[in-house]
Design a protein around this nucleic acid. Structure first.
Lengths: 202, 202
DNA sequence: TTGAGATTTCAGTTAATCGTGAAATAAAGT
DNA sequence: ACTTTATTTCACGATTAACTGAAATCTCAA
C-alpha cells in the first residue's frame, strides 16, 4: 500500500529514538533546576514524548535506572497528577501513561511548585508578623520598618498565591486563558521587545 | 523626650533580631527549593529585612558564613539586580543594600529564573524539532506524533516566555499590573459558589 | 492458602552541591 | 614604590540529595 519510504525505516526509527532521548535528557536537566529529581523528570518526559503506556521494566531499561528509583519517581508523578495507571487485560503489571494535554500538564507543574515553594513561606511570614514586636505610635523607627517590610513581602506573595489558585487549579482552562488574556493586554510601554532568541545554546 | 517605653528597649531589640533571623532562615530555605544557594538567599534576606547597607564583615558575622561565600553570593545578587553597591565616604569597604521595592524584587527573581529555567529548554526544543525526522504525508504515525508533541511543548513554553519578557522586564509595573488585571478578570465558568479556600495554609 | 510475579521500602553507597579558608589579586593610602 | 587593607578565586573538605539493590511486602490466580 504505502509507497516505499524514501528513507529506510530503521534509520528513521533511530532518529526518532535519538530525538526522544534528547528531549528526555533536557527535560531531566530542567528538573534539577526545578528541585525535582532528575529521574522523576526523565520518567515523565519518556512517558509524555512516546505517548505509550509503559511498565516499570520498560522504563528501567530505557532510562537505565534502578527499579526502586522508577517506583519512587512514578509514585511522585502520580501524586502530581501528570501520569496515570493503566491496567492491561491479562497482564499483572501496572502500566503508566502521561497526561497528553500540555496545558493541563503545565498547570499541574505550576500548582505543585507553588504548593512547595510559596505556601510554606507565606505561613512563616504570617507567623513572624505576629511574633515580631508590634509597631505602635511610639515604637522605634526600625520596628515599624520591620513590620512594614514583612507585610510588603507577605502581600506580594499573597497576590501571587491567590492568582495561582485561581488559574492553576486542577480543572479549567485557567493558565491557558490567563496566558491569552495577558498576551493581548497592553501593559506599560508597548515596545516590541527584540525576538532575540537565535537558539544560542551557550 | 520620649516617654518611657512599656517594654525595655533591649527586649524589643532582641525580638526584632529574632524576627529578622526567622525571616532570613525561611528565605534561605526557600532559596534551596529554588535552586539558589542557601547563603545567597540569606544574604539577600538580611539586606532586605534590615534595610541597612552592610559590608562584607558585617554580613559574615551576622550570618556566620565565610568571606568567600559572602563574596560570591553578593556578586550573584548584584548580577540579579536585587542589591547594589554603596560607597560610604571615608571608608574603603564596599557596602551593599537591597532593592526595597518588593515588586521590583519579585520581578527580578522571576526574570532570572525564567532565564535559567525556561530559555535553555526552548533552545533545545527548537533544536530537536529540526533534528527529528520530518513528518511528511507518508511518515509513520509515530513520527508525526513526535513532532506534534515537541511542538505542543514548545508552543506552551513559548507563550509563557513571551509573557514573562513582557511582564517581568526590569522596568515597568509589569508583574504588579498583570496581577491586578488577572485578579479581576472572570475566567471561564463564572461559577460564583464555594468560596472554598479559606486562606488555608498548605 | 499458596506461591510466582510485581511493587515498595530503606540502609548503604554514590554523586552533586555548597561552603571554607588561605593564597592571589586588586585598590587605596603614605 | 611600598604597605596596608579589601576582595576574589579556587582546590579541597563537608553536607546534602539522589540512586541502588536486595529484602520485605503486596497481589492475584489457581
Amino acid at each position: 500500500m504505502t509507497p516505499k519510504p524514501r528513507v529506510p525505516n530503521v534509520l528513521v526509527r533511530a532518529q526518532l529514538v535519538e530525538a526522544e532521548d534528547r528531549f528526555i535528557a533536557s527535560w531531566g536537566r530542567m528538573g534539577s533546576v526545578w528541585g525535582i529529581s532528575r529521574t522523576m523528570a526523565e520518567v515523565h518526559a519518556l512517558l509524555y514524548i512516546t505517548g505509550t503506556e509503559m511498565c516499570t521494566d520498560e522504563i528501567m531499561s530505557r532510562l537505565g535506572v534502578s527499579r526502586g528509583n522508577v517506583s519512587m519517581s512514578v509514585r511522585s508523578l502520580l501524586e502530581w497528577g501528570v501520569i496515570e495507571k493503566v491496567r492491561i487485560a491479562g497482564d499483572r503489571k501496572e502500566y503508566f501513561q502521561a497526561e497528553q494535554d500540555v496545558w493541563s500538564m503545565l498547570r499541574a507543574i505550576a500548582r505543585e511548585r507553588i504548593k512547595r515553594e510559596v505556601d510554606p513561606l507565606l505561613d512563616v511570614l504570617d507567623e513572624i508578623g505576629e511574633l515580631a514586636p508590634q509597631a505602635s505610635r511610639n515604637s522605634p523607627k526600625d520596628v515599624k520598618e520591620l513590620q512594614a517590610r514583612i507585610e510588603a513581602v507577605r502581600d506580594g506573595f499573597g497576590v501571587i498565591t491567590t492568582l495561582s489558585h485561581k488559574f492553576a487549579g486542577p480543572r479549567g482552562a485557567g493558565l491557558q486563558t490567563a496566558a491569552k488574556l495577558l498576551a493581548r493586554a497592553p501593559i506599560g510601554r508597548t515596545k516590541k521587545h527584540t525576538p532575540k532568541r537565535t537558539g544560542g545554546t551557550r
